[in-house]
């Protein structure tokens, strides 16, 4: 590991002040991703700002503002606590399921909600400093190891010639489906609100930039609006082993029904793009329609029609269709078996 400076802060403004103007400083939350990457020499911060003492762990109902009736989830709360919180279990079971589908019990006990959104891709070329990677070395030797390499786990939507990585978070996929917003603070300027849809970005020509967070910005909370999806939602994660593996494909699906008619649908996909992928075409197609298998299939077909698979991941197109249909069916009926 490279030597680095370690700074502990106890409030938001000292946290944001500590990083202001220091492009090589990083916040340290649970450390489950950042420290791994530092050991592998992928992340090379000169300074770590330990933010774990900030009081940003609360989960509370929102009593005013645009998301009144919704919920605020503190950035420094642990993934485990978010997944087990009664308000989340009751009103946002999709989010609880998505969090529990990720990592392992031990890691979720350390991992924070803010850190989860900012975890970096699991592309193996990114993790191996002996390999070319535009995301890791934007100024260095150009090249994406995965574009023509082993890319079974990689993107089928929204990739660029520069980078074909996917965002690995499960939690973020549920948050995308549930129209979450992210609240951030910086040393200069007032609180900023970024919708989850705009939080992560596509790689385009700048794969080194994962999100639209500006340098020095601190995530303080994630907010979810009130919704009527609690009864009919499901997070499906397809993976190479039953737990503790990243998604080949995941689907966060939520329905609001009037009888057998879909009033609102939310579908987001994980494991397919550089960001959680909202399946807007599928959603639109379902609204006002009967919730039938045929309609679910049609929606899935329409959404996956735009997929552009790479050499090793063509299976994700068919798997994506099937998974969307299955997730919607389980959301609708509650029957997983």
């Amino acid at each position: 590991m490279r030597p680095f400076k370690f700074t502990t802060v106890s409030d938001i403004s000292s946290a944001t002040n500590s990083v202001a103007g220091k492009p090589n400083a990083r916040f340290l939350a649970g450390g489950t991703n950042l420290l791994d990457l530092m050991k592998e020499d992928v992340e090379r911060p000169e300074e770590l700002i330990d933010i774990t003492r900030l009081s940003l762990a609360q989960i509370k109902p929102l009593t005013d503002g645009v998301n009144k009736g919704g919920i605020s989830i503190g950035a420094l709360g642990k993934n485990t606590d978010a997944a087990n919180h009664p308000l989340i279990r009751q009103n946002y079971p999709l989010l609880a399921q998505a969090i529990l589908a990720g990592a392992s019990g031990q890691i979720r006990n350390m991992a924070t909600n803010g850190g989860n959104l900012l975890q970096r891709t699991r592309c193996p070329y990114f993790y191996d400093v002996a390999m070319p990677c535009n995301k890791r070395e934007p100024g260095g030797q150009p090249g994406c190891g995965a574009r023509e390499g082993i890319n079974r786990m990689h993107a089928i939507f929204g990739w660029s010639e520069k980078c074909v990585a996917v965002h690995p978070s499960d939690m973020a996929v549920a948050l995308a489906a549930l129209d979450a917003v992210v609240k951030v603070r910086s040393a200069s300027g007032p609180e900023r609100i970024i919708t989850l849809a705009d939080f992560h970005r596509l790689p385009e020509d700048r794969p080194e930039i994962d999100t639209n967070l500006s340098p020095g910005e601190l995530i303080t909370a994630i907010e979810l609006p009130k919704n009527r999806f609690a009864e009919k939602s499901y997070y499906l994660k397809v993976r190479d082993r039953s737990s503790y593996a990243f998604a080949l494909i995941s689907v966060a699906a939520a329905l609001e029904m009037d009888g057998n008619r879909v009033v609102q649908a939310r579908i987001a996909l994980g494991g397919v793009a550089h960001k959680p992928w909202r399946a807007l075409k599928a959603e639109q197609l379902l609204v006002g329609q009967e919730a039938t298998e045929a309609n679910f299939k049609r929606a899935a077909e329409v959404e996956m029609a735009d997929a552009k698979p790479l050499e090793h991941n063509a299976f994700k197109v068919e798997l994506g269709k099937r998974s969307i249909v299955r997730a919607l069916q389980v959301a609708l009926t509650g029957n997983r078996s």
Binding site: P124, Y125, M131, G145, I150, R241, S242, A245
Partner: peptide
């Protein structure tokens, strides 16, 4: 364990990529 057929490196270098069965399997 997957070898990159261009360069001979393993792309499965951690337990995140090399999947030994988990308890749930």
């Amino acid at each position: 364990s997957v070898v990159d057929p261009r360069w001979g490196n393993f792309v499965t270098r951690s337990f995140g990529d090399y999947h030994v069965p988990a308890n749930l399997d």
